[in-house]
Amino acid sequence: MTERAVLEATELNKRYGDLHAVRGVSFHIDAGETYGLLGPNGAGKTTTIAMVGGLLENDGGQVLIEGEPMTVHTLDPRRKIGLVPQDLAIYPDLTARENLTFFARLYELGGRRLKDRVENVLEVIGLRDRADDRAGEFSGGMKRRLNIGIGLLHEPRLLILDEPTVGVDPQSRNAILESVEALSADGMAVLYTTHYMEEAERLANRVGIIDQGEIKAEGTRRQLVQMVGERDRISITANGPLESVVSDLRALSGVQDVGASDGQITLLVEDASALLALALETVAKNGASVSSVVVEEPDLEAAFLHLTGKALRD
């Protein structure tokens, strides 16, 4: 955590009668960082987001936005948050521009700045050409983009995206993910909930695996994978003295295991990207020629399965 995190959630709790929906959830997000909250439906992601966004009163714990406490009653921290709800939260009978203008005014934007921000967001979400069409006439992907655009209007310090790609076509989905990457690169802190493994892997600097209201594990993808004993796999197809190659490879630091069969050498390593160049150099040094290389990094699916005992799609 940097000197002051953009978001710091500590020991959040929420009960609905007998259901303990969120149990002691803690995490933080720094500027320019994307935090993925990964979990199946009903895991407590949306409830956590609702407490972080000041929509829902918590039964315990604290949320700080750049050091300011966020509750259902506080207004100032809300100016620093851009919330993109899971369900489309737009007015279909208003045009894209009218939707953006209305919400911009709620964030006290006015005059020249309001116009500039609306135009800028229309550009970012790719709806400039359709700005004066009613949102109800848009495709699903365009509506999603407008939904996200509203959250960007006031240039928040923290952008909260709750499953923003649900029901979106692949093209729009990719556009959304690219936008999130760009925003994060610009220094925005992003809290991204999803139950799509590949989105968490692509976007998140750190991932919190949540299930049954609890953060089961948290860290970078590598940390999570290592936490459950998974390793990167490098498969090298080569011709030459493979036995000596295997022997030299086994001696390299970071190599867990090496095997060879039918002209293919398989290495299990801690970090494939760090070892790949050295491994290929070792193969070449032994007089073998490489015809193909495949690097497989273990995904979060295995980590998730290990931590929660169930596949994410459950």
């Binding site: 929509l55 709800p85 919400f103």
Partner: peptide, 14 residues
């Protein structure tokens, strides 16, 4: 019902 209330409540207004 339509989800826009969430957005209104999330904004800095009473």
């Amino acid at each position: 019902r339509d989800g826009t209330m969430t957005r209104l409540i999330a904004s800095p207004i009473r």
